[in-house]
């Protein structure tokens, strides 16, 4: 009988000490007069899945959108103080090109939003807007991205059909593939499964699990089970504050904070 003997929980932890890629320090963020985030400090580690949980309006999506400056789209949104550094560069510095940042930090949205184009064009979009015209290069990236998103086998025969004909789960994985095509290092996911049925959700979760070998993933979710299933670390937010940030095991098995305890055990409010 030959069974390996390491205690299971330790498998998730890499042998090397984890390396932080996103460093948030004392971040205060506001929409106009109403402050949305208060003094957030947290490090997000390389090639791990980090989950943000918390009730609606707790600021988890806001923080996520700070990481690739999606909040720039909202005029009244602004950072009051603090900093976010990705790979040791302050991303809110003046000399940062948002376009380059967003290529580095991809994003997948709550509602799957494939463009009403063919599947191929959806994936190729990111490269086309960068001016890539070489057909073979496009073909290659489209295939590798679709394979990366575990979608290739399902769609390879209908790459030129409209992406809107895909099922909800496939659409969401298409959006992930689309994000992969611009070769990001970090992928932000804003409630990627909230509109999906359990089977599609399971597929996306499998994908997240698979992707963490190569990417750093931050996922916002309302589904605590999902956070527990997919993430290595979990951050619990409440009313714009980071209440607890620990390994997922710690958060779900033995949270330090009584609010976290109440939230993860469903005794909130």
């Amino acid at each position: 009988m030959n069974v390996n003997f390491d205690i299971q929980g330790k498998q998730a932890e890499p042998s090397k000490p984890p390396k932080p890629v996103i460093k948030t320090k004392n971040l205060d963020f506001a929409y106009g007069d109403s402050q949305a985030l208060f003094n957030i400090s947290m490090d997000i580690f390389k090639k791990e899945v980090t989950a943000f949980i918390g009730p609606s309006g707790c600021g988890k999506s806001t923080l996520l959108r700070c990481f690739n400056r999606m909040n720039d789209l909202i005029d009244i949104a602004q950072i009051k103080s603090g900093s976010i550094r990705i790979s040791d560069i302050d991303i809110y510095n003046k000399d940062v090109d948002v376009i380059e940042l967003r290529k580095h930090v991809g994003m997948v949205f709550q509602k799957s939003n494939p463009f009403p184009k063919s599947i191929y064009e959806n994936i190729a979009y990111g490269m086309r807007i960068q001016g890539v015209k070489n057909r073979s290069e496009l073909d290659e990236t489209v295939e590798s991205s679709l394979r990366g998103a575990a979608l290739w086998d399902e769609v390879k025969d209908r790459l030129n059909k409209s992406a809107l004909g895909l099922s909800g789960g496939q659409q969401q994985r298409l959006c992930i593939a689309r994000a992969l095509a611009v070769k990001p290092k970090i992928i932000l996911m804003d409630e990627p499964c909230s509109a999906l049925d359990p089977v599609a959700t399971a597929k996306v979760e499998e994908l997240i699990h698979k992707l963490k070998k190569h990417y750093t993933i931050v996922v916002v979710t309302h589904n605590m089970q999902q956070a527990a299933r997919v993430s290595d670390r979990t951050a619990f937010f409440y009313l714009g504050r980071l209440v607890e940030y620990e390994t997922t095991e710690q958060i779900f098995m033995n949270p330090k904070n009584s609010k976290t305890e109440a939230y993860v055990s469903g005794r909130f409010g």
Binding site: R102, K103, S112, N113, Y125, G126, I129, Q130, A179, V182
Partner: peptide, 23 residues
């Protein structure tokens, strides 16, 4: 036009005009 088209395009590194022009 759904907000998602714009966000999706911007998140892929499109500039504002590219986003409007293509999406």
């Amino acid at each position: 036009i759904p907000k998602g088209f714009r966000e999706g395009s911007l998140a892929l590194g499109a500039s504002k005009w590219t986003c409007i022009r293509t999406n």
